[in-house]
């Protein structure tokens, strides 16, 4: 069979393959040769999460909740249905729950057992989210982890860590930053980062144009 895997991002690798990469290639070749995996289906899967599904979906959910109190109420009451209103449904998002960050409660999400993550709204998890250090320390020392992400919380704020041990998938609704009054839903969505929806970052206020620059 051909060794040209079309999803390999072109070019010759500049470094030797790691043991994991070799194992994945061997498995993929074997499964393909045995007819158990359709390589075109693999490409379609990878393309879906590289170009179609990602954290911009979640950002739209957050921005809608910021500008539309009725939507926010639906989102907190039945996140799966409210997120589906924007067209985001499916695998790893069958049971969505949205956690609202407030001045007194900060939510953050982890999967200590593996890498559970709400795909339809955030795409695939970043490498650090799947790493053993994040998975063990998020529950043991959440404030230390948040500090490393640049989030310093006052002692008075309660930290709630949500360990995704079931099929429930969590999305954090970050606080709307100051200085965003009057911004459109689209402008707000552009401010929302992936990390803020995992709960390891705040949404930064918009960068103001330099003095003398027309707005």
């Amino acid at each position: 069979m051909s060794h040209e895997h079309r999803h390999e991002h072109g070019g010759t690798p500049q470094r030797p393959l790691t043991e994991t990469e070799l194992r994945v290639r061997a498995l993929e070749s074997l499964l393909t040769e045995k007819g158990l995996v359709d390589p075109k289906a693999l490409d379609a899967l990878i393309d879906t999460y590289e170009t179609k599904v990602g954290p911009r979906n979640g950002a739209r959910v957050v921005a809608r909740a910021w500008v539309d109190p009725a939507y926010k109420a639906r989102l907190l009451n039945d996140a799966t249905a409210a997120i589906a209103e924007l067209g985001y449904t499916g695998r790893q998002g069958e049971e969505m729950v949205v956690l609202e960050n407030t001045p007194t409660v900060h939510n953050m999400v982890v999967c200590t057992l593996c890498s559970c993550y709400p795909w339809p709204v955030l795409g695939l998890p970043p490498v650090w989210y799947k790493s053993p250090p994040y998975r063990s320390r998020a529950v043991l020392d959440p404030r230390g982890v948040l500090g490393e992400f640049g989030v310093a919380l006052p002692d008075g704020v309660e930290v709630r860590v949500w360990d995704s041990t079931s099929e429930v998938r969590y999305l954090v609704l970050p606080e709307r930053p100051p200085g965003t009054e009057g911004m459109s839903e689209g402008e707000l969505a552009a401010l929302v980062t992936r990390d803020s929806m995992i709960g390891v970052a705040r949404v930064a206020p918009p960068v103001r144009p330099a003095a003398g620059t027309p707005a």
Partner: peptide, 10 residues
């Protein structure tokens, strides 16, 4: 922290 909590689905 006396304030913090961990939520698990069980």
């Amino acid at each position: 922290s006396a304030r913090d909590a961990i939520y698990l689905d069980l």
